[in-house]
C-alpha cells in the first residue's frame, strides 16, 4: 500500500492531476484531459491520462463514481496521512525543557 502511494506521488503529471482535482472535485476524464492540455500544456494522450488515473486509484488517492452514464473522479487525501503518521513532525519543545 505504501509503495503504491509513493509511486503514485513520484510523477509530476500525477501530482498535477491531484492539484486539479483539489481545485474541482468530480471531474470527467474529458475535463481532466482538458485541464492538462489547455492549462498545463501537457501533451499527453487520453490513454496516458487513464493510465495515470489508474495508478492514482490503486493508491487510493483518486476515487471514481458513476452517476447515470457518466463517470466522475474525486480526490481522496486520506492515504496521505500515512506519511505524517510515519514521520510525525517533532513535538515543539516546551520552554521548561529549553536549556537555560
Amino acid at each position: 500500500m505504501a509503495d503504491d502511494l509513493f509511486k503514485a506521488l513520484a510523477d509530476p503529471t500525477r501530482r498535477t492531476i491531484l492539484d486539479e482535482l483539489a481545485e474541482q472535485s468530480g471531474q470527467t476524464l474529458f475535463e481532466i484531459c482538458s485541464r492538462l492540455s489547455m492549462k498545463h500544456r501537457l501533451g499527453i494522450s487520453r490513454q496516458g491520462v487513464s493510465q495515470h488515473l489508474a495508478v492514482l486509484e490503486a493508491a487510493g488517492l483518486v476515487e471514481t463514481r458513476r452517476e447515470g452514464r457518466y463517470k466522475f473522479h474525486d480526490l481522496n487525501t486520506a492515504p496521505l496521512r500515512q506519511i505524517t503518521e510515519r514521520w510525525p513532525a517533532p513535538a515543539p519543545s516546551g520552554p521548561e525543557e529549553s536549556p537555560s
Binding site: Q24, T28, S34, M38, Y70
Partner: peptide, 22 residues
C-alpha cells in the same frame, strides 16, 4: 458534467442534451 472552466483564452462547459449526448 463540466462546470465553466477557464483555460487561458478559452472558457468551456459541458452539458447533457437529454437526448443521449454531451
Amino acid at each position: 458534467t463540466q462546470e465553466p472552466l477557464e483555460m487561458g483564452p478559452v472558457t468551456t462547459a459541458v452539458f447533457d442534451d437529454t437526448c443521449g449526448n454531451l
